[in-house]
């Protein structure tokens, strides 16, 4: 499962690191490191993490209906 985080948008709330700790991890206080190719077994966790991200910075491929808000969030860019 491919994913990417818009790290311009990310503010280090770390919600993803709690919800999908095998995929997202904080590196220091605010820096986020993630696995851009998460195991499919992690899908449920990753989708939950993407939905919970306060700044909607996580884009996951093939999220079905859930992609819509994420896509909107990303295309604003900054």
């Amino acid at each position: 499962m491919r994913l990417v985080v818009d790290l311009n948008r990310c503010q280090g709330y770390a919600q993803c690191a709690f919800l999908a700790p095998d995929v997202f991890a904080m590196h220091g206080d605010e820096a986020l490191l993630y696995n851009p190719h998460a195991d499919d077994a992690q899908r449920e966790h990753v989708v939950r993490a993407a939905a919970a991200c306060p700044v909607q910075a996580i884009l996951v491929e093939d999220m079905g209906d859930a992609t819509a808000p994420v896509r909107e969030g990303l295309s604003g860019g900054r």
Binding site: L7, N8, G12, H27, G28, D29, E30, A31, L32
Partner: peptide, 10 residues
């Protein structure tokens, strides 16, 4: 806008 993470700092 850009970011970097290094030595544990964002």
């Amino acid at each position: 806008a850009f970011w970097s993470s290094q030595f544990g700092v964002s």
